[in-house]
């Protein structure tokens, strides 16, 4: 499978990472190489193999949904670069 500069632009947009045009070629080449390496997997027949998401293999632990923590918004927003009145702030999105 060939991986192009346009593919990098597309995933960069999806990932919200800006890539300079200068760097585009480098990213394309590097990712192309790695994808080529990954495509070895096509040698294997995996029909009828159940995908494995994690080592616990589907064991999900449930707990009661109860509030055990909270009530300190000042601490929570403390690490934000921009906050006001205990809210996180972002550039205006609604006119």
């Amino acid at each position: 499978m060939s991986f192009s500069n346009d593919d990098v632009k597309k995933v960069a947009k999806l990932s919200r990472i800006r890539i300079d045009d200068k760097q585009l070629e480098q990213y394309t080449n590097d990712i192309q190489k790695v994808l080529g390496f990954m495509e070895q997997l096509n040698e294997l027949n995996t029909d009828n193999v159940e995908p494995m998401a994690n080592p616990l293999d589907g064991v999900q632990v449930l707990r009661n949904d109860e509030i055990k923590d909270g009530g300190y918004p000042e601490t929570i927003v403390n690490n934000a670069t921009d906050d006001t009145m205990n809210f996180f702030t972002v550039p205006k999105v609604v006119e």
């Binding site: 990954m38 997997l41 096509n42 294997l44 995996t46 193999v49 159940e50 995908p51 494995m52 998401a53």
Partner: peptide, 9 residues
């Protein structure tokens, strides 16, 4: 999904 299947193997 292919990788997850190989993970099982």
């Amino acid at each position: 999904i292919k990788a997850q299947k190989v993970r099982r193997l």
